[in-house]
């Protein structure tokens, strides 16, 4: 069964198209990753699905309910963990949970029981009467996840849940998410720009760039789609190296970015020597050569011609501009 359906969903802000004609579906019970650089439209899409933002055009259904006309039903079906913190720091962990439970009209006895269980699940039961302002970033995240589950949602949206956390806490959070997905059969839609995380944990991923979906499949299929292996060469003279390598029969495709050139080839190990010889004969300096299996990072590069890191710097700048423009309005 399809639990989330997007049909040509579009959101424009003052002429800037943040989400551009996006259509896809998420199956019940899967962990669906939504990948892309900052400012690609991930959060805007999630906000629309969570009924916080109205779409400019298009339709979407969550758990069978229309996000425009059946807002309350959609809201009851979803739990959401926002990118930015959303706890009341002046209240205790228990009070934050209790507040949520009351807002979702959960009866007292059930509410108390579930709060207890969930706080245990995220290992915060011993700190339940402490004010949230005393909590670390990881503890806050865990509390937010527990809170998002209190009303037993069908779908859990997580917007960059591991952003700004240390690697150990990140792994921890991912373990919880997997456990929830397996044990409670919750469909999880998660946005992240940590490609390796998505690779490990998502059943399927959609890659979004500049408001458009550019690829959607299982991580394995996406990587296989690139085919073969990748040889990344760091060289100041990529312009002259590329056409030479293209002559080889084993060459499939290449991508230049930022002083690096990535060749997509079959059986990479066999051909390193070939590339090295070629560079030697033509006096092309090589600073480094690296061979690896394709990652989702390479998938992004393959479809956009840019690495997600290059994208990051640019988009942060862009977001700032957007923010300024919005404030001026």
């Amino acid at each position: 069964m399809k639990i989330i359906i997007l049909e040509s969903l579009t959101k424009k802000f003052n002429g800037f198209t943040a989400v551009d004609n996006v259509s896809f579906t998420v199956k019940e019970g899967e962990v669906f990753g939504f990948l892309g650089p900052n400012g690609a439209g991930k959060t805007t899409t999630i906000s629309m699905l969570a009924t916080l933002l109205g779409p400019t055009l298009g339709e979407a259904h969550v758990n069978g309910f229309n996000i425009k006309t059946q807002k309350d039903d959609v809201r009851k079906s979803i739990g959401i963990i926002f990118q930015d913190p959303s706890l009341d720091e002046e209240l205790t962990a228990y009070e934050n949970m209790d507040f949520h439970g009351r807002l979702y009209h959960i009866k007292k006895d059930i509410r108390e029981k579930r709060i207890k269980e969930l706080l245990k699940l995220v290992e915060l039961d011993e700190r339940k009467n402490d004010l949230v302002k005393k909590f670390s970033g990881g503890m806050r995240r865990r509390l937010e996840i527990a809170r998002g589950l209190l009303h037993e949602p069908k779908v859990l949206f997580l917007d960059e849940p591991t952003l700004g956390l240390d690697p150990q806490t990140r792994n921890h959070i991912w373990e919880y998410i997997q456990k929830l997905n397996k044990e409670k059969k919750i469909t999880v839609m998660i946005t992240t720009h940590y490609m390796e995380e998505a690779d490990k944990l998502c059943d399927r991923v959609a890659i979004i760039d500049k408001g458009k979906i550019i690829a959607l499949d299982t991580p394995k299929n996406l990587k296989d789609g690139i085919g073969g292996d990748l040889i990344t060469v760091e060289t100041p003279d990529a312009e002259s190296l590329c056409p030479l390598v293209q002559e080889f029969s084993w060459f499939k495709s290449s991508n230049q970015h930022d002083g690096f050139v990535t060749f997509n080839v079959m059986d990479a190990e066999k051909h390193i020597a070939g590339i090295a010889d070629l560079s030697c004969q033509n006096n092309i300096e090589i600073k480094s050569i690296n061979v690896h299996k394709p990652t989702l990072e390479d998938v992004f590069l393959h479809f956009t011609g840019r690495t997600i890191r290059e994208e990051e710097a640019g988009s942060v700048e862009h977001m700032r501009m957007m923010h300024k423009a919005r404030r001026r309005r």
């Binding site: 809201r75 009851k76 913190p85 959303s86 720091e89």
Partner: peptide, 13 residues
């Protein structure tokens, strides 16, 4: 600013 309002606004109320 502290994000708590979103938590309230996304509830079915």
């Amino acid at each position: 600013q502290f994000g708590f309002l979103k938590e309230t606004l996304v509830a079915p109320v």
